[in-house]
Design a protein around this nucleic acid. Structure first.
Length: 272
DNA sequence: CGTAACGCCTGCGCGC
DNA sequence: TGCGCGCAGGCGTTAC
């Protein structure tokens, strides 16, 4: 479920409450995508300093300079509360602190919690080093973005998903952003000129920023770590709307497959 | 090197 | 109602 906005909303929903908390115990359930990388029990006594985000990874900073990298995968969600129900079969990570319990619920187990000694640790480095710029930071400049587009012959939608020229754009937002920019998802990235590149750059920032403001409205089921549901105000223009009329021109929305994944677009509003 | 497919899992909705 | 199938928001790894 989580693309960048949902991860950021999750982060904001518990960062302030968990910062300063002392870890009492850590327990793992079924295996996640990668092993934790150290004995969970050995984390007892550490203090949580804060929670950052890089792409779709959450970085839980501990007082000894080490960190926990948390990824929600396709089906993960975090809860942080003083009073949680008994762990269920899909709860695979639990960190009990003096301020509450942080728990990862992840039925498909594509998510992960990985310990790294520090940010330059090869373990952390490997996961974070290839990430492109953050779309909501000033480092996400139009110039670099356009240069990235020009350098790739891949269909623009796949390039957006790759995380090479910008991170955090998942399968839903990729379709939505291309619709807003009026760009055909199959267009070669290198064929996109400055005018459309500018529109795409702006659309990425606007859509993601708005989704974060709205509380991570992913158009489906999402709830942040405090248990609040996403708002759902961000209606999809194209995602999941195959054969339904385009909200702008009425043309039926089309569905196609790119890289084994669904892409939705309006054949009239998104030419070339 | 860049690009494309694979696989990790479970749950859900659909058509029969 | 039950069953099998295809699909699902990610992404590192493997194979060209």
């Amino acid at each position: 479920m989580p693309e960048l906005p949902e991860v950021e909303v999750t982060r904001r929903s518990f960062e302030g409450r968990i910062a300063g908390a002392q870890i009492r115990s850590v327990a793992m359930g079924k295996p996640l995508r990668w092993p934790l990388g150290r004995d969970p029990a050995s984390l007892a006594g550490r203090q949580v300093m804060g929670v950052r985000r890089r792409g779709k990874y959450l970085l839980v900073d501990l007082d000894d300079g080490s960190l926990l990298l948390v990824h929600l995968g396709m089906s993960g969600s975090l809860r942080f509360a003083g009073d949680l129900p008994e762990p269920g079969v899909h709860d695979h990570f639990e960190m009990v602190t003096d301020r509450g319990t942080l728990r990862l619920h992840d039925p498909r187990r594509f998510g992960a919690v990985v310990w790294a000694a520090h940010e330059a640790d090869p373990v952390a480095h490997k996961l974070l080093q290839n990430l492109g710029p953050e779309p909501l930071d000033d480092g996400f400049t139009f110039e670099a973005f356009h240069a990235g587009l020009r350098a790739s012959r891949v269909p623009v939608k796949l390039l957006l998903l790759s995380g090479k020229i910008v991170v955090g754009v998942g399968n839903i937002y990729a379709s939505e952003v291309l619709f807003l920019a009026g760009i055909r998802p199959t267009a070669r990235a290198s064929s996109i000129g400055p005018v459309r590149a500018r529109r795409l750059h702006a659309a990425i920032r606007e859509v993601l920023a708005r989704a974060v403001e709205r509380g991570g409205s992913t158009l489906r089921d999402f709830s942040s770590a405090d248990g609040n549901a996403g708002h759902f105000q961000l209606e999809a223009n194209v995602y999941g709307r195959e054969l339904q009329p385009c909200r702008v021109c009425g043309t039926p929305i089309k569905l196609l497959r790119q890289g084994q994944r669904s892409t939705f677009y309006c054949p009239r509003c998104q030419r070339a």
